[in-house]
């Protein structure tokens, strides 16, 4: 993966995650949680903007963050499938966030030490934010896993449902600024510890869908983009 593709992929992950989290606004289980989810969405969106801006510069074709966010079709997006999956119930959203953050923490930490100064700066900023996301998601995974019978069932279902989509995150790529396969051990350790404490079972690894990094997505992404891009595309060239 070139530096451009890599930056785009990491930026698209953050952008699509922010878009999904933003859907929770005014719908969270507690009003306090509404605020927390918005904070996490804002962090992801902030990282996405820095990364997409930098990707545009790397490409050198004059595209800015909005050109990249609003004027690409789903086949041109490089995000992982995990982030585009629908929110589901609060358990599914927490499972998605937990796995994403458990990947982003070591990713951003590695980026913080990489040779590319711009990526290093993004990594240094975003790893602190991701650490908070991981903490928040882990708190909820434990509470739902070890809460009531119903919440345990729902949280286990959520973990089972989302788990297949994590493998794509770690596909080896020695040419990338950070080889994702090097992050897997860290991810597994985090996940095992939290799932254990939450009295949840880590699913067996079987089906492992992928393709997001090559622009082959689930059916969900096109709908997400249709909504996200509709206004921007309806007024070509306009300023907002």
């Amino acid at each position: 993966m070139s530096r451009f593709d890599f930056t785009l992929a990491v930026g698209d992950d953050a952008l699509i995650a922010a878009q999904r989290l933003g859907e929770w606004t005014s719908r969270a289980p507690e009003m306090e949680e509404d605020i927390a989810l918005a904070n996490i969405a804002l962090d992801q969106l902030g990282a996405a903007r820095l990364l997409l801006t930098y990707a545009g510069e790397l490409e050198g074709a004059g595209r800015d963050e909005d050109d990249l966010a609003y004027l690409r079709d789903d086949r041109e997006f490089r995000n992982c499938l995990l982030v585009e999956l629908p929110n589901g119930d609060f358990g599914v959203t927490m499972a998605k966030l937990f796995f994403l953050a458990a990947y982003q923490v070591p990713l951003y930490s590695a980026l913080a030490g990489c040779a590319d100064e711009r990526l290093a700066a993004v990594g240094a900023k975003a790893r602190k934010e991701s650490a908070y996301h991981l903490d928040h998601a882990a708190l909820w995974v434990k509470r739902l896993g070890d809460g009531t019978e119903e919440s345990h069932r729902r949280m286990q279902d959520a973990v089972d449902q989302v788990w297949p989509y994590v493998h794509e995150l770690f596909a080896p790529d020695p040419a990338a600024p950070v080889d994702p396969s090097t992050l897997r051990a860290d991810f597994d350790a985090t996940v095992s510890a939290v799932l254990d404490e939450a009295t949840l079972t880590r699913p067996e690894t079987g089906w492992a869908p992928g393709g997001g990094r090559d622009g082959l997505h689930t059916e969900h992404l096109s709908y997400l983009l249709a909504e996200m891009q509709v206004l921007h595309r309806a007024h070509p060239g306009a300023s907002w």
């Binding site: 933003g22 859907e23 605020i35 918005a38 969106l45 206004l231 921007h232 007024h235 306009a238 907002w240």
Partner: peptide, 26 residues
């Protein structure tokens, strides 16, 4: 309009604004 905000900057501002409203309610 959060999901359809026409630029990423506007999206961030609107998210923060609506979040503030939850805070004010609390």
């Amino acid at each position: 309009w959060i999901s359809r905000a026409p630029s990423l900057k506007r999206k961030a501002i609107l998210l923060a604004k609506v979040q503030d409203e939850a805070g004010h309610g609390l």
